[in-house]
Write a protein that binds this DNA or RNA. Structure first.
Lengths: 218, 218
DNA sequence: GCGAATGTAAGTCAGGTGCTTGACTTAGCT
DNA sequence: AGCTAAGTCAAGCACCTGACTTACATTCGC
């Protein structure tokens, strides 16, 4: 089984260097403020068409970056999910939502760029769709969503959807803000990703359990 | 006092049409995905340099769009602020944070683009600073922040900062998501901006009042 | 009224973009 | 050993961008 090992190794390394460079540049300067050329150069590829060759369009590159991280996040989530069984404590399910991601950021070492990258992709009208597709492809994530539904049977479906969206917004943008603060050497409220996860989970639980103010006509 | 009235009128109309076109295009396609040329053309200005002539760089244009709306939001907030006096109910202060903005979106009629525009500006590493500057220039906003501090004296300063940031994220991105859903004719959890404000305020209050999980070493 | 001033229109320009093309290099097969 | 296939590289393409220049139309101070 020595078929093409060296070659495949090189290709893989080139792809990896492009992904890493792109993730960094996108996070720091904005996805659309960085050209494929700049990505290729930053990745040490003299070829200005390296991105196009290996990935295609910028959207495809973005998708590849997401997938690269998703596997690790998925692992973390599956592990956590196994530990809580069929708990009916909202906190357990929130942890399954929050911790896998922040754990992953912690594992990446320092500095990281993935959180800022995700925040931008989620906010861009053209790229958002990609992120949503890739996220919903995770079976464990669907499982967590069902867990919430079981935990909060009394919450009206509309409010459940509304608060789910809010939780998602926080989970995307709060880590991004912390990551940016770390990059700029600005003090952060929490000293580690682990503690930040605790603070974020506190807030998300607060959202889910907040009283629902009735509105006229419902 | 008829000095330059007609001329000034024209200039004002041109500026306004550029601002409106830019806000719309930026919201729909992304700030950096739209060139100044496209903005000029969409504004009905044959001159491809109209944006540069009237505003300067793209960052200056973004700032002008923000300022155009800020005055109305400020009015709403001042009015609301006058009604609550020195209340110690967190809900009152959250309303002062949330309602002025969503009221403004309601006043704009339908469709709107401002919420999506703001979400993008806040997420872009280069433009974020502009938004922060313009926002903090509002005296009433500072007043609201002080109100929170008075309401929640027992909350550790770190947690207060953390949750303030979270509230900000929600206030920016939740309206943007609703606006997008409206634009795409997707059903929304709430039938009006007013009700959406209630739902958002519920969640933000939930964040502020959530129990703080102690972490080791603090 | 009339010239100066000013906003608009239109065209030009250098630089940068994504994409394509073709030559070069190298691994792996026969 | 030589051939094939695939990754890399360099150059060129048409297009678009922001910035600049020039010509035109309208308004306002005199």
């Amino acid at each position: 089984m020595a078929g093409g090992a060296v070659r495949a190794e090189q290709v893989s390394a080139t792809r990896e260097s492009i992904l890493t460079a792109a993730e960094r540049l996108f996070a720091e300067r904005g996805v659309y403020a960085v050209s494929n050329r700049q990505v290729s150069e930053a990745a040490g590829q003299g070829n200005n068409a390296a991105v196009g060759y290996h990935f295609g369009t910028k959207a495809d590159l973005v998708r590849a970056i997401i997938r690269k991280h998703q596997a690790r996040v998925e692992e973390n989530r599956v592990r956590l999910l196994a530990g809580i069984g069929d708990s009916t404590d909202v906190r357990d399910w929130v942890d399954c939502l929050v911790r896998p991601i922040l754990e992953h950021l912690a594992e990446l070492g320092s500095p990281t760029w993935f959180a800022r990258f995700c925040a931008q992709v989620m906010t861009d009208p053209a790229l958002q769709q990609i992120m949503v597709e890739e996220s919903l492809s995770s079976p464990s994530l669907r499982e967590v969503i069902e867990g919430f539904n079981r935990c909060l049977p009394d919450l009206p479906a509309d409010v459940r959807a509304e608060r789910g969206a809010m939780a998602r917004q926080l989970i995307v943008h709060v880590p991004a803000e912390r990551e940016q603060a770390l990059a700029e050497r600005i003090p952060t409220p929490r000293s580690s990703w682990r503690d930040a996860a605790t603070g974020l989970a506190d807030a998300v639980v607060g959202i889910w359990l907040a009283p629902v103010t009735p509105v006229p006509g419902t």
